[in-house]
Nucleic acid binder design. Structure first.
Lengths: 225, 225, 225, 225
DNA sequence: TATGAATGAGAGTTCATTCAT
DNA sequence: GATGAATGAACTCTCATTCAT
């Protein structure tokens, strides 16, 4: 009976994840509203009714999808950030591209599209995302920038702005993968995104390094219109 | 009767634009699939039936919305780029933040969200967007970067990558406006985005300027993991 | 255009009642839960969707059905009770059977079945029924009984109990019509219920009249077990 | 092992009754169509699947519920009616309230609601009910009325009508218990129904007793409208 | 031209019933 | 025998679209 129970139990235990995987794919690809719940079930290899044994509604499924897809990656990132040697700049240049490459290649990369799309319709999603993703993510990068300023690797600058300058293209890359990229219109450069990611992070960090004429602010035009 | 006719004519002539405006707002806010066509009609001040006098289906309405919202802005950008004096860096620092501020504040800023969301569902949209928006937009920036390299303002670098480094945060800003921003969770910094835009463009361009040890590539970590 | 408007308008105006009629029939016949909303629509000669233009849900339809079916009859009864001559007993003997015959023959007779069945599931229905039907109905009968006691036509007795003795069989008759009666198992006596109604009211009132040995209470067994 | 087997056997033997009890409660409370079969199983302390080991379908369960709930009571009534002394009126006044009080207080009282509700949907139920309940029940009362007329205790009258006058309020009382009564809207008088039952039976029988002017018919109004 | 009543395909969800364990 | 995971037909309700007026 142990074997018997196991076979069924194994299926049952795997179901939630299988359903989440199927749902993530479809929600990202077609949008939440445009995805029929039966499609999710079928892609997960079960029938319509079975979906509702595990998630009480399509909306709850959405929340679970987003939550679990991000939870793992966030934890990974946090772990990776610790126990690294080198200057703050080196840390950023090492960890960020590596971690982001993983995210980009995993299905979790689609979550950004999903979040941006559905945040307005499900406000509690916004709070979850702000609290669990934006805040810790921003903090990780901001800490290194602060440290870099403290030790003189970087000039003084507006850390918050720089965080966005660094991070936003990484997110855009994920969005791109699941919009233009998913239409078969892959720009070659973005097919393998790691070089771009490294180039981007390095470029921004270069802009932060001290230089002879450094005024403390980036080189803004005197008449910004 | 001429006056009456004229008045009615005026309304009639304004209809398509009013419908497009209403549709853009709603599609951006709730998503295409989750927006009911009657809502669009009501917000445009007409009845359900009237919508169908101007656009044969909801899908055609979507295409018209995207097409027209971007058309004007693209043209503006092109015009603004010409007839400007100064170094390539100064041009970018002047034009880009100005133009983007306008885009950001206009309803057209929502189109990016819409495009990212619906591209997969309506592939012809992808081609239109790539041809009419990405290509000319990238070209405008790329030209200046090439010119900057030619005249020695910028060091040698991968122009394509830099274009993305510059432009992606600007697009993200628009996405943010219509996702987290629309949930009332506006981060103060992004409430008035112009300073950030200027900071960002300046920061990246700073990373491109010559420096003693410049090798032509940004300062990449020797062991990129 | 007046004629045009009228034709469509007439249909639209008649819809709610047509839907209520259809719903009453079906809910009574098959029960609320066992009636498909499309059946109601079809019997009313419209499509599924049209039903929802007039009633926002099946449950609201149920409430409307009950409310309107009883409202009319209650008002009729109240009107009939006034402006009648004769002793209280004669009034009861005249009005009650007449009014009840009308109720019995009308579709409203089915509401009792509906109410008894669905009261538990929709508690607000219970309050409506108690307030709008039971209370005024009981009061009408009770008043006459009180008057009859006052003028000596009836002996002293428990009015509340007697009201139920009089009224309950009338209600049962309606229930019977829509249960056994609707199964084709019509007992002949109940096919034409007026004689029974008259017999019943008269019988109970006879029990109330004074008699030599009257003790004020009905003739209860000395040892009621 | 014998003990273990016995214990299990006992449970197994009790199952059908436990299921019937649970089903009766739920069917009465919520209606047959609105009761989920799993609810029945859970209330009976078994699993969904087990229910189907004992009853092949929900519908069969319904039939069994009705059949068995009434069977016992009918038999009891028949037994109680025999071996009683006294005039027919005294018998009625003694047995009927006593028996009915038992029925009222037992779960079987709900069957009337169930029967009225579901008779139309399951016609064979109607036949069963007419044959096994209405006929024997009416006969029991009718016999006493006939006997009463024969011995001069009652005046001549329409026995069939009188049977209904006597019995219908008793049934209504049961319906009331499971409709308004179950909504917490218990009218005090009906909370303890025995006094009402006695009052009612006595009242009707009083109407049947001889009196000086008795014409054989109840005191009907000369102009019954 | 403009309306909005009407439609019916289709979506989300439920639940009686089955059957491998 | 007992279970409860799984199924899929059936139900309530929605909404893009049509068309008589």
């Amino acid at each position: 009976m142990s074997a018997a129970t196991t076979a069924r139990q194994r299926r049952k235990d795997a179901r939630p994840q299988e359903l989440l995987d199927a749902a993530l794919e479809l929600f990202v690809e077609k949008g939440f509203a445009a995805t029929r719940s039966e499609e999710v079930a079928v892609r997960a290899g079960v029938s319509k009714g079975t979906l509702y044994l595990y998630y009480p509604s399509k909306e709850e499924l959405l929340k679970a999808v987003i939550q679990q897809a991000l939870a793992a990656k966030i934890a990974e990132g946090r772990a990776m950030a610790q126990g690294l040697q080198g200057s703050p700049g080196d840390k950023l240049l090492t960890v960020l591209p590596h971690w982001w490459g993983e995210v980009y290649r995993s299905p979790a990369s689609g979550v950004f599209k999903l979040v941006i799309t559905e945040m307005c319709n499900f406000p509690e999603l916004a709070q979850f995302y702000a609290r669990e993703v934006i805040e810790p993510g921003s903090a990780l990068v901001a800490e290194q920038l602060e440290a870099g300023m403290a030790c003189g690797e970087f000039r003084r600058h507006d850390v918050r702005s720089t965080v966005y300058s660094i991070v936003m293209p990484l997110i855009m890359l994920c969005l791109h993968k699941h919009s233009l990229g998913a239409c078969g219109m892959v720009e070659p450069m973005l097919a393998d995104p790691d070089p771009f990611i490294r180039h981007h992070v390095a470029l921004v960090l270069d802009g932060l390094r001290h230089r002879p004429d450094a005024t403390g602010a980036p080189h803004t035009s005197p008449t910004p219109i």
